[in-house]
Amino acid sequence: MSEPIDPAGRSGVLEPANLERFSATWHAPHPALVDVVETCWHVRWSLGDEEIVQRVIEAPAVTITIERGDVPAALVRTTPGPRAWSRTIRGAGEVLGIRLRPAGLAVVSDLPVGAPGTTRVDADDPRLLAIAEAIAAADTLEDRLRVVDDRLRAAAADRPPTSEGLLANAAVAELTRAVHLRTSGVVPGASDRAVQRALRATLGMGPKAVARRIRLQEVARLLAAPGATPAAVAAELGYADQAHLTNDLRGVAGVTPAAYVRSLRALGG
């Protein structure tokens, strides 16, 4: 199943009006991959001589991208860092992204989560490299999505998600479901220390950092709505005050809520 990425949805995209220009779509993975893949997404663009700086407050997830055209690399693994992801989009190209659940990285990769940031998928990670190259070899988007399902189902049969990975999955699901949820007692029956260990092992960040990312994605979504004000968004999302929201967004996205709203209005978003 595929559907357009709704500019009004919680995508983390900081210039949501660009989504239509990128022909951005979500693609649901095979149901058997529910513990391995959260979602797949695809973007395609042709900008001529224009350049667009695209910024995204990433979800708390490791993402594998298969890229073609005017792109920095063909096969990329991205682990969310302390700042929003940013890239200058130019020329023409397309990207298929596979957003893994926390348990998914150990299923498809021989390496630990590692440092945050964007790295090429290479021979140091032979398991993931073989999967990514098989996906990239398919000609059409439909074929690549079919290979994603087939290869990842085979990988999960060979190396099922671990109990630690499944605990991290449950923690992220709960924090995503309830933006206001406290970061203690997130998963019933699991200690806070076990949850923290599981998230750090699979995502490289603890519960507070995961919750912060999810809430900031919601901040971006709400601020993009017509008539939104930073004060109203701060109150709705449970920030102590508007200054707390300002510091939080500026720390990750490098922009204040007021400046972000002004930039969206200037872009017509």
Rank of each mutant, 00 (worst) to 15 (best):
E58F: 00
G117I: 13
V76C: 05
V95E: 09
L47N: 07
L105A: 01
R83A: 11
V53E: 13
E38W: 13
P102Y: 10
W45R: 14
W41N: 06
V95W: 01
A106P: 08
R77H: 00
I57F: 10
G81M: 05
A73F: 03
W41R: 04
T79N: 05
T39H: 14
E58N: 06
G114R: 12
A84S: 15
R90N: 02
V113I: 13
P82L: 02
T65Q: 13
A92K: 15
P60C: 08
L105C: 09
R90C: 00
R77V: 08
V76E: 07
E38Q: 15
V107S: 09
E50L: 03
P60I: 12
V108E: 01
H42G: 00
W85H: 11
P116W: 02
Q54R: 15
G114F: 05
W85Q: 06
P112N: 10
E67V: 00
I57M: 08
S109F: 04
C40W: 12
T39F: 07
G93F: 03
S109R: 10
V95H: 01
R68N: 05
R44Q: 14
I98C: 00
T65N: 07
E50F: 02
R90T: 12
E50R: 14
R99K: 15
V56G: 02
R44M: 05
A61D: 05
A74R: 15
E94L: 01
R68F: 07
A73D: 12
C40G: 11
V53W: 02
E58C: 05
A84R: 14
A115G: 06
V43Q: 12
I89P: 00
R68C: 01
L100W: 11
W85D: 08
G114D: 06
V76R: 14
V56F: 00
V43C: 05
V108T: 02
A103K: 08
E38I: 10
R68W: 09
T65F: 02
A61N: 11
G104E: 01
I52G: 00
V71K: 02
G104K: 04
T118K: 13
E38M: 08
P72N: 01
G81Q: 06
W45M: 09
W85C: 00
A115Y: 10
G48Q: 03
R101F: 05
I57Y: 06
V107W: 01
I52F: 03
A92S: 15
S46R: 13
P72S: 01
A106N: 09
V76Y: 01
